[in-house]
């Protein structure tokens, strides 16, 4: 009897551990430049974020979704733009080459890449198309942030955003580890 109870307990413990081993973690790392620069590390279990987001109620944030009814984005069809990007063929869509700043937005397979190169700063953003799909999966005039986070947890792995400059270095990424590198 005791053996059976111990075995069941161990199996339960192992099951919980394995379930969490599959869980993804969102990491944020900010390193300010200079000797006195601040170092910030944030680690968030995506499953926790997915559970909490639908319960957060704020002005335009409701059940994990952001509504655009009364915001400055009213004039911009955000969902339309995201849908157009999702349905477009692979290629480089926007290239801006200016004095001190280059911007490139391109789609390669399942990945949307945004590269911004300034004189003293480089920004790289990588978003999987499934995340955009999830983002626009709700009703009109709303973005489903909770669904996008859910897809991030299922599909995403690696860097989402990196910013490199003389002043600071920022990295936002997803992996299976519960601690930052």
């Amino acid at each position: 009897m005791i053996r059976s109870v111990c075995a069941a307990g161990l199996a339960l413990l192992l099951g919980v551990s394995l379930a969490w081993a599959d869980g993804k973690w969102l990491h944020i790392r900010v390193d300010e430049g200079g000797e006195d620069g601040e170092r910030v590390r944030v680690n968030l279990p995506l499953e926790l974020v997915s559970e909490i987001l639908p319960l957060v109620e704020a002005d335009e944030f409701h059940r994990g979704k952001v509504r655009f009814d009364h915001t400055d984005f009213d004039e911009v069809d955000v969902r339309g733009i995201l849908a157009a990007v999702r349905d477009a063929e692979d290629g480089e869509y926007i290239t801006v080459e200016g004095a001190g700043e280059n911007v490139k937005i391109r789609k390669q397979g399942n990945l949307l890449s945004i590269d911004v190169d300034e004189d003293d700063e480089k920004v790289r953003i990588r978003v999987r198309m499934e995340v955009l799909d999830a983002l626009i999966s709700g009703q009109e005039n709303e973005l489903d942030i909770a669904a996008a986070i859910g897809v991030l947890g299922e599909k995403a792995h690696g860097d989402l955003v990196t910013v490199e400059s003389d002043r600071e270095s920022v990295r936002i990424w997803i992996d299976d580890k519960n601690e930052a590198d």
């Binding site: 969490w20 910030v40 499953e47 926790l48 559970e51 930052a180």
Partner: peptide, 23 residues
């Protein structure tokens, strides 16, 4: 959300949530 956050935290393995190291 606050209630769920504390409850869910119990199920998450040990981890560092925030670390800030300044001068």
């Amino acid at each position: 959300a606050v209630r769920a956050l504390w409850r869910e935290l119990e199920d998450v393995p040990d981890f560092v949530l925030v670390e800030v190291a300044g001068r």
